[in-house]
Amino acid sequence: MSKKNIAILAGGDSSEAVISFKSAQQLADVIDRSLYNPYTIFIKGAEWTVKQDGVQDISIDKNDFSFQQNGQKVTFDCALMVIHGTPGENGILPAYFDLIRLPYTGCRTFTSALTFDKYATKKYLEDEGVDMARGYMFRKGQQIDTQALVEELGLPMFVKPNASGSSFGVTKVKGADQLQAAIDTAFTEGDSILIEECITGIELGNGLIKTPSKALVFPVTEIVPKKEFFDYEAKYTSGMSEEITPARISEEVTERVQELSSHIYDVLGCRGIVRVDYIYSNDKLYFIEINTIPGMSPASIVPKQVEAMGLQLRDVLTLEIEDAIARF
């Protein structure tokens, strides 16, 4: 049986490009090379290039996502999406692959666009009885009555970009005098922001993948940041957070988390590996966000959950790739 060519897509046009590279590197290392020929494709703006050790970068032909090497045309059987942020996680690249009819991992175009917008996702899940922090969305140029927000939501509160990941631009506001600066910071990451009440509790993350033949809901991870909250530094700096898998919660709460993650996955129409984040407070699970292209670097949560489940990341990756190809 001939091996399938897999394009591992890395980079992107957001602050998360550096995390994307680390994720792509790990997946290139663990992918089953008895089944696949992996190629890392770097995407930055209009530059789409094949990165190979000891070989000059080769441009991708965007007409059919192919490239020429040694006089031969190389095409792909599947694109492995590892671009956090735009244009991968927000649906732009999925739409392109839909147009050229190339299988790709992860969520379809609509689900990617929907889930990248935190406010839209919350509105979508409202009717499902999912508990969420109270908050408001604002677009750039809107007048924001900071005093009214403090009175209604209380302090501390969170200000975050509405469409961004890896906790870039997120501020935990403790005083009313800090709110405007936090708003300005969040707007550096995009044109809309969320301002939400602060729910105090245990932060939890739960990864999963569901295919027509198999559902893998991974163990739950408890996240204990050494800082005020799980910001970029806490996520990606060694020793800045403690990530405990399985989480120090009861079996009953663990089951509730996993069942809710599975339900949210289905309601949103997800595909591939995702991670759902919560705050557990006063016996309620508050949905924070869903990551449809979660970090897959050695420091990331999902690979640790896969290991804790007694599985090999290589095999879970194979499941995701083969499902993407079979269902396209």
Rank of each mutant, 00 (worst) to 15 (best):
K284Q: 14
N162D: 13
G269P: 10
E222N: 08
Q147E: 15
K235W: 05
K172R: 12
D191H: 14
N37R: 13
R139A: 06
S2Y: 12
S238R: 11
R101C: 03
I301Y: 00
V50G: 10
L208T: 11
F230W: 06
V30R: 12
T75F: 01
E255S: 14
L125Y: 05
D231H: 11
G11M: 06
G201C: 08
I19R: 04
Q69Y: 06
D64E: 13
M137Q: 14
E196L: 07
T292H: 03
Q26H: 14
K3S: 11
L9T: 08
V267D: 07
E307A: 15
K51Q: 15
F76H: 04
Y119K: 11
L208M: 15
A7V: 10
L194S: 00
F110C: 03
R248L: 10
S59L: 12
F97P: 02
Y232E: 11
V257M: 10
K3D: 11
K118N: 03
F65Q: 04
P161K: 01
G45I: 12
Q69G: 00
L27K: 04
N291F: 02
G11I: 07
T86A: 11
A181F: 05
V316T: 02
L311I: 04
S213L: 09
T86K: 02
F230L: 07
D117A: 01
E196Y: 08
M1D: 13
F42H: 15
S241I: 00
S300W: 00
K210S: 14
D117W: 07
V150R: 05
S297D: 07
T221S: 14
S23P: 03
D13G: 07
S241D: 09
E152K: 15
I41S: 07
I183D: 07
R134F: 07
A79N: 06
L204V: 10
G141F: 06
M132W: 00
K122M: 13
S59T: 11
Q258R: 15
I321F: 06
D98M: 09
F42R: 12
I41Y: 07
K284G: 06
Y280W: 13
E252I: 08
L319E: 12
R275L: 08
P156Y: 12
N90I: 01
D57Q: 13
H263S: 14
N5C: 07
A182H: 03
E189Y: 15
E233M: 04
I290G: 04
E307M: 05
R314K: 14
L194R: 01
I290P: 02
R327C: 11
F328Y: 15
T109A: 11
T146I: 13
R314A: 04
G106T: 10
I293H: 01
R248P: 03
D13M: 04
R256A: 14
I249E: 07
E89Q: 10
K174N: 15
G269A: 08
R101V: 00
K304C: 00
M240N: 11
D315P: 02
G88H: 01
A182L: 02
H84C: 06
A28Q: 14
A324T: 06
I321E: 03
I183L: 09
Q52V: 06
I6C: 08
I83W: 05
I273G: 05
V18G: 03
Q26V: 07
D184Q: 09
V130L: 09
G91L: 00
L311C: 07
A28K: 12
E252R: 11
G106V: 12
K304S: 03
S20M: 05
M137I: 11
V257K: 01
